[in-house]
Every structure is written in C-alpha cells, then in structure tokens.
C-alpha cells in the first residue's frame, strides 16, 4: 500500500505540475488581440493588477452578483485556505511558529469548508436554474471535495490517524527517502481522494484558479487611446494601411 500511494502521489504531482504548466503556457502564448476590459476599469496596469487581486481574495464580482452565493463560496474557499495552511506542518520540519499557531483555525476552517460545500451542493440540487446548468462533473467535484474534507475532519476529530507516520511518509517522498504509510483505511480514502483531485485539476473547471489571472476583462488596463495594442498575428494587416 505504501508503494501504491508513493507512486500515486509522484504521478499526481507530475500531472498537476505539468498539466498546469502546459495550460499556463497556453494562456501566456495566445495573445489578447483587442482591449476588452469590462469597464469602468482601472486606467493603469497596477490598478488592473489590484482589480485581479480583489477578485482572487474577496471575490468582488461575485459579491456584486449574489450575496448568498458569495457567502457560500467564501466559506468553502477561506476554509480551504485555513486547512491548507494547517497542512503545511505535514510537509516541513521544523514547523514554523506561525503554522503551529494556525492549527486550531485550520480545524474550524475544515468545518467551515465542509459546511460551505454542502450548501453549494444543496443549491445545485434545489434551485431550478442552477440545476439546469449543473452537469455530472459539477456534482462529482463537490462530492470529491466533501469526501476529502469529511475524511480529513473525521481523522482530526474522531478516528485519529498516526499523523507522525503520515508526516514521515510525505517527508520521505519529498527527499526520496521512502517510509511506510500508516495502515489506516480512512487515511487511504483521504489520500486517494486528494490524489484524484490533483489528477483532475488541470483538466477540469479547477482551471479557474490560473484562469482568473489571465482573464482579459479583468487584467487589462483601460488605456486603449493612450497605448497602441497590437497582437503579433494582427501585424499582417498593418502592411496595406494608408499612411499620411
């Protein structure tokens, strides 16, 4: 089982990094030939970067749209961030003070995340227009995340796993000094689901994570009259232009 999980996590990491890398490379390579910021938009590139940052951190547009949905999204994403911060201690030794201090918040974060996910799932099943746009993969994604959160929360709160052993396993993976993974069915479930999430990440709607940084309606400055913007492929039309 240890070998299986070791192979799985190496594979998942490679797929995640390479898959995301290829996607980001595509977004970088393909030009945005026209200025299409959704206006009113910041007039400077710095302002546009701040606009993207607001989308990433406080979900500004979603807040404009729907306060309930925003609250659910915040519960899930902020909860997830707290959980991820908490998990840092399983991957580094010694554990920085700030990570240690964050541990209890990570536990609340986990509960917040699971609650948010259940609300998002309920919304998909109950609201007719949202049910219409929901596909099988949208439900599976929520179920997957609930599975990860649920199995994790169970291990933290009820069926404790040998966390020292888990940490040794992952530190071993990272230093190529392989260690045994504690034999614990709940842990297996948790890790298998995490690996699944890593594997589907670059091929699914989770691409909204890199996507938001490349969204031209958000990351472009409104300076079309001041600066000429020309895509490389559009340069061919320059040749037949009348000159004064």
């Amino acid at each position: 089982m240890s070998i299986l999980f070791a192979v799985l996590f190496y594979a998942a990491t490679i797929v995640l990094v390479a898959g995301l890398g290829l996607k980001v490379a595509q977004y970088v390579r393909v030009p945005a030939p026209l200025k299409i910021p959704t206006t009113p938009a910041p007039l400077t590139q710095g302002g546009a970067a701040f606009r993207v940052a607001r989308e990433v951190v406080i979900f500004e547009s979603l807040f404009k749209s729907n306060k309930w949905l925003w609250a659910m999204a915040v519960m899930f994403h902020f909860g997830l961030v707290l959980v991820l911060i908490r998990h840092v201690r399983y991957f580094i030794e010694p554990v920085p003070m700030v990570i240690t201090l964050m541990q209890p918040f990570g536990i609340y974060g986990g509960l917040l995340m699971i609650a948010g996910l259940f609300m998002l799932l309920g919304r998909r099943l109950v609201l007719p227009r949202i049910r219409y746009i929901t596909g099988p993969s949208d439900l599976l994604m929520l179920v997957l995340l609930i599975g990860i959160g649920g199995s994790g929360a169970l291990m933290v709160n009820f069926v404790h796993t040998d966390i020292i052993g888990v940490k040794a396993f992952f530190l071993g993976l990272m230093t190529f000094n392989w260690q045994k993974l504690p034999a614990d069915p709940l842990l297996y479930v948790h890790l298998a689901l995490v690996a699944a999430l890593m594997l589907v990440f670059p091929f699914s709607k989770l691409l909204h994570v890199p996507g938001i940084f490349f969204s031209p309606t958000r990351n472009q400055a409104d300076d079309a009259r001041e600066r000429r913007h020309l895509a490389p492929w559009a340069a061919k039309y320059e040749a037949n232009k009348t000159m004064p």
């Binding site: 996607k23 030009p31 030939p33 949905l69 949202i130 709607k205 996507g211 490349f214 031209p216 309606t217």
Partner: peptide
C-alpha cells in the same frame, strides 16, 4: 488567436452568478 477563448472556456465553474 484570442486568449479570452481558452481562458473563458476553461474557467467557468457553472456557479450561476451570471444566470
């Protein structure tokens, strides 16, 4: 040719904010 296309097509999470 248009970055907006792959980014927009990949990124939608079907949240229904626009619906």
């Amino acid at each position: 040719k248009y970055r907006s296309l792959p980014v927009f097509l990949d990124s939608c999470v079907k949240c229904g904010s626009c619906a």
